[in-house]
Design a protein around this nucleic acid. Structure first.
Lengths: 135, 135
DNA sequence: TACATTTGCAATAAATTTTATTACAGTATG
DNA sequence: CATACTGTAATAAAATTTATTGCAAATGTA
């Protein structure tokens, strides 16, 4: 199921890209998106794990980009949020005695894999800089 | 947010395509997917609205395809389930005083529109028959 | 050094969304 | 006319996402 992780992460990064030299606090970022600062810090933790941003603790602390916005693709962000586009699965174990039930999830998975690959190709052509320039 | 509508609908249609001459009951279909019959009937109601299937009430009733599986594309099914692929929006009204907050949803929407168009093109090439033949 | 500000993180609560269940009226079949 | 279905609405339960609270640790500044 798709949560707001991608959107939140992209919002964070867009803000950071607008102030590449400043450390922005999670409170400031959360204020722009009207979301809880703890949620912002959670996504930032994920960005740090991926070496996209760095943060500084303590007074006047915050977070800033580690990489140039022109070097970060939306596909990379997509992959970092661990979101995978699916159109849903049979979540209850389907009936293994039914030829369709037995294989439905495997076949859906193949279909969604193909879709994800296409999306990745598309998102790979768009950099954070491109996106940020729309603002 | 993406629910299981597409997957459920595709499962229903795959089953129907396997028995094109029979009326399958919602109980039978629900049994294959291990899901509640009422949920199946809800999705079937949607399929009927779109003239993809017809049902017969009463004893020995059920549902069957109205169109050949080779004439139904996965894109049509995708569109019928009203699912749109998104990677999430800022669901709380973002801060209108922030240049990023003010425009983020509009820009995400454009991005997702593009993605959906690509997915549609891809799903348009696959028929229910193609999908069904994998089983 | 003491204080204010900020991150980091875990635990819990609230809200939202999805799915299941219940109930019952209506319809065809044998 | 009894049985086996669909159709639909209302409610409940489950799952997921988002918000909140609480506090430790770090850091700049007076």
């Amino acid at each position: 199921m798709i949560s707001g992780k991608f959107a939140i992460t992209l919002h964070i990064l867009t803000l950071l890209s607008k102030f590449p030299d400043d450390y922005l606090s999670s409170d400031f970022i959360a204020g722009s998106m009207n979301v809880h600062p703890v949620l912002v810090r959670k996504e930032i933790a994920n960005l740090k794990k991926n070496h996209i941003v760095e943060s500084k603790e303590g007074k006047n602390g915050g977070t800033r980009l580690l990489k140039s916005a022109s070097k970060i693709t939306l596909d990379a962000i997509f992959k970092m949020t661990f979101d995978t586009v699916t159109l849903g699965f049979s979540k209850n174990e389907p009936n293994p005695d039914c030829p369709v039930g037995k294989q439905i999830n495997k076949n859906l998975e193949h279909l969604y894999d193909d879709i994800n690959q296409t999306i990745s190709l598309q998102l790979n052509e768009i950099t954070l800089e491109d996106f940020s320039n729309k603002f």
